[in-house]
């Protein structure tokens, strides 16, 4: 399969006055054309940071460090100037639906006005023509044209999320990063939005990066799953490899799955991972997960495990998987 995106040795540090927060430290993965790649992990592990890095838009004081490569459709976008990024990449080729975006619609403007502004910022277009386009996109996400005249507070959470998705698709990007797009929604609306995303992906021939901390949801959405811990990839495998019979191979993924409540089976207790993710200014030596790992060995404390391919397409960073 063709790769739409190759991320190599991506480092993004937040340079705070207490030191550099190593939010992404040597992250390497590919995104294939037409696939959905899931990013999962606990809060603070670097999921959103990965998303904004791909837009070349780190939030201050963040900086993408030397040596990082982001190859979009064969072209390394790291050397591009900000102007070129705006013209060719950000929103044009790579779009992102931000975490909580549906609550960030401007309350004082109608939906139509807000969508119009986004559109006219990027495209020269007559008002009439833009309106037609907005209506077309609204209908694609299952909303009637009347929505244009409404204010955000007059709409439900699900409707607002549809609008945010429609806006992200306006410029016909190839890659869409979805950051927790359904976390604030109830199960029925969530399922409706997921169905919509699956259809849009086909219609527009998109590739998705789907960010969530919900492993159950990821199982229904993503072709491959990338599990992150403390700014690094712990495990990356196909849906089958992570959720199938054999189960995941990294102790962290294993624990995350055990912490997931199941609906169709009564579990007496959920296991959780004691402790909290580490301080990324001064992360633990060796494997960053070792202080919380139930399978820790001496070696884990001093030597960092490489991300190695344990079976075709299945990458794990754990000394237990190194033969």
């Amino acid at each position: 399969m063709d790769k739409i995106l190759e991320v190599k040795n991506l480092k993004l540090y937040y340079h705070t006055n207490k030191g550099a927060v190593k939010a992404l430290d040597d992250v390497t993965f590919d995104l294939y054309k037409g696939e959905t790649l899931g990013l999962v992990g606990e809060s603070g592990c670097g999921k959103t940071t990965t998303g904004v890095a791909l837009l070349r838009m780190p939030s201050p004081p963040g900086r993408i460090e030397e040596g990082s490569q982001i190859i979009l459709d064969g072209r390394d976008i790291m050397p591009l100037t900000e102007r070129q990024i705006r013209k060719d990449v950000r929103w044009e080729e790579v779009a992102m639906v931000f975490q909580g975006a549906m609550n960030c619609l401007t309350p004082v403007y109608t939906i139509g006005k807000q969508m119009m502004e986004t559109l006219q910022e990027h495209r020269e277009m007559e008002k009439k023509q833009a309106e037609e386009l907005i209506k077309e996109y609204l209908s694609l996400v299952g909303l009637p044209p009347e929505v244009m005249g409404r204010y955000p507070h007059e709409l439900s959470g699900g409707m607002k999320q549809r609008i945010v998705i429609a806006t992200a698709l306006f410029l016909k990007p190839k890659v869409v990063i979805l950051d927790e797009p359904t976390t604030a929604l109830d199960v029925i609306v969530q399922a409706q939005i997921i169905n919509l995303l699956k259809k849009l992906k086909k219609t527009f021939d998109l590739s998705f990066i789907f960010i969530t901390h919900d492993l159950s949801l990821e199982a229904e959405v993503s072709d491959r799953i990338c599990v992150m811990y403390a700014g690094k990839i712990a495990e990356l495998g196909t849906n089958q490899q992570i959720y199938g019979k054999q189960g995941p191979m990294h102790p962290y993924t294993e624990k995350l799955l055990q912490a997931t409540p199941l609906l169709r089976k009564k579990v007496e207790s959920l296991s959780f991972i004691p402790g909290a993710p580490p301080d990324l200014i001064d992360p633990p030596t060796g494997c960053r997960f070792h202080p919380r790992c139930h399978k820790v060995m001496d070696r884990c404390k001093v030597e960092e495990p490489p991300l190695i391919e344990v079976e075709p397409g299945h990458m794990v960073a754990c000394w237990r998987c190194v033969k």
Binding site: Q190, N195, S216, A219, E220, N239
Partner: peptide, 25 residues
């Protein structure tokens, strides 16, 4: 319908559009 809509951590559902017994809001 609520139960139908709940996702499960199991493989084999990525290419499936979930049949939701109820629609709309």
């Amino acid at each position: 319908a609520l139960i139908e809509a709940v996702p499960e951590p199991m493989t084999g559902k990525v290419d499936v559009i979930k049949e939701l017994p109820i629609s709309g809001e």
